[in-house]
Computed example of a mutant assay.
Amino acid sequence: MGSCEVYPQTIQHSPNGRFVVVCGDGEYIIYTAMALRNKSYGSAQEFVWAHDSSQYAIREGNSVVKIFKNFKEKKTFKPGFGADCIFGGFLLGVRSNSGLAFYGWETSDLIRRVEILPKHIFWSDSGELVCIATEESFFVLRFLMERVTTAQESREMLTEDGIEDAFEVLGEVQEVVKTGLWVGDCFIYTSSVNRLNYYVGGEIITIAHLDRTMYLLGYIPKDDRLYLGDKELNIISYSLLLSVLEYETAVMRKDFNTADRVLPTIPLEQRTRPLSVMLFKNNCLISVLLNYLTRLSILLQFSGEQIV
């Protein structure tokens, strides 16, 4: 297909898959993903995409961040606490030696500053949930966009650290995340002790114990398969039913109508653990499984009929 003009330190596809950026040697080059045609280039120590692919940001040195839209520079600013590292997603994250600051892509206004030194930041597709992974643990937060909009309009809840109610902390887990991704409200990750887990509603469920270091490549919902690779370019996959993830998400949200609708699509052998363990820990077992037990009883009596 072609060759790269710089020695790459990072390679990132845009969220829509149309472009790929190579960053290294103090430069970045954006190529079209299919033909590897040069689309844009410039100087940068670091490059990150926004969630919509039309915007991206670069870091120059330890003090200057530039935001681009449609490949044209839109905003240059100097974060008040410095810029040692930047993170993409629904908000622009800037890490300094004193913590992490989130900025809006459109205005570069400070949304919230927290005293966390992240190594990775993972946003869900909806932009409602975010995982902030540090060297010792990871935090799961809910981004409250409505409160942010209200505070920005009223200007009454703004502080030097941004908007205090911009995020709601949902949980902290004492595990080190190596690679991760979101599927709905479920955060799937590989840990430093070579476990493949997922987090949903405050509970950790183990999918597999890995015999070597593996890296998450992606999840294909139509195949119900999770794909991982290693440094020797070996690829393995694990079965992970989307219906199970949807059911667990509905239960944790206490959306029992959706849970009842999804339950019949889950094979019987998948309806025990980890579903029962998660529900029991969250005091939802009786109310949620009552319908399941009724359906199971009918199945045992009339095994030839389909449950709907």
Rank of each mutant, 00 (worst) to 15 (best):
R271W: 09
E269I: 05
C284Q: 10
K281D: 03
L279N: 05
L263E: 06
V288P: 07
M278T: 14
M278P: 02
T272H: 04
P274D: 12
P274E: 08
S276I: 14
P274V: 05
D255E: 11
F256T: 02
S287Q: 13
V262I: 15
C284N: 14
D255Q: 09
E269N: 11
L268K: 14
M278C: 15
L289R: 11
M278E: 00
C284V: 05
T265N: 11
N282M: 10
L290V: 05
N283D: 15
E269W: 07
L275K: 05
L279Y: 02
R273F: 04
Q270L: 06
F280Y: 13
A259R: 07
C284K: 04
R271C: 07
F280M: 09
N257R: 12
V288T: 05
I266N: 08
L263Y: 00
E269L: 05
L290W: 02
T258S: 07
P274N: 06
F280E: 14
R273L: 10
F256M: 03
F280L: 13
L263V: 06
I266G: 04
A259Y: 00
V277C: 12
K281F: 09
C284E: 13
I266K: 08
V288L: 07
R261I: 03
N283G: 08
R271G: 05
T265G: 02
M278G: 05
R271V: 00
S276N: 07
P264A: 09
I286N: 14
L268A: 14
F280W: 14
I286Q: 15
I266Q: 09
I266L: 03
P267F: 06
V277G: 04
K281Y: 11
T272E: 12
C284D: 10
P267L: 04
R271K: 09
L285E: 14
